[in-house]
């Protein structure tokens, strides 16, 4: 399982590629790529995002299921998806709370 990630140009915020080529702010909403075909079209969307100067530095990452939740495999990507492990009041982990509150 893979998906595509990047940083958004205007504020540097971490984003992932959604199902329709849009960029989403939470990894849970990312497009999960299971086939080579999906990956090929995702990479096209990613390039378009860079060409339009909406995002920068797009790349593919590995995902895994942990306790029924989808999460990035590497610690670095998990920290990007959540925020600093030492400041739970910052980053996505904090925004997620705000949205569901």
């Amino acid at each position: 399982m893979k998906t595509i990630t990047a940083n958004r140009l205007v504020d540097g915020d971490v984003v992932w590629l959604g199902h329709n080529g849009e960029w989403v702010e939470f990894v849970e909403a990312a497009w999960i790529l299971n086939t080579d075909e999906d990956m090929t079209s995702a990479l096209d969307f990613a390039k378009a995002g860079e060409d339009k100067q909406y995002v920068l530095g797009t790349y593919a990452i590995d995902l895994e299921l942990k306790d029924g939740h989808l999460q990035p495999k590497s610690l670095k990507e998990r920290i990007r998806a959540q925020g600093p492990t030492t400041r739970l009041d910052l980053g996505k982990q904090a925004e997620r709370h705000l949205r569901s509150a």
Binding site: N7, L9, D11, G12, D13, V14, E50, Q53, L56, G57, K76, I79, R80, G83, P84, L90, G91
Partner: peptide, 21 residues
């Protein structure tokens, strides 16, 4: 483009890190 801009922003102390600039 980012390739053109990156050296310019670095000259002004602006990096891109994990979560943001």
């Amino acid at each position: 483009t980012e390739d053109e801009f990156k050296p310019l922003r670095l000259m002004n102390g602006l990096y891109l890190q994990l979560h943001a600039y």
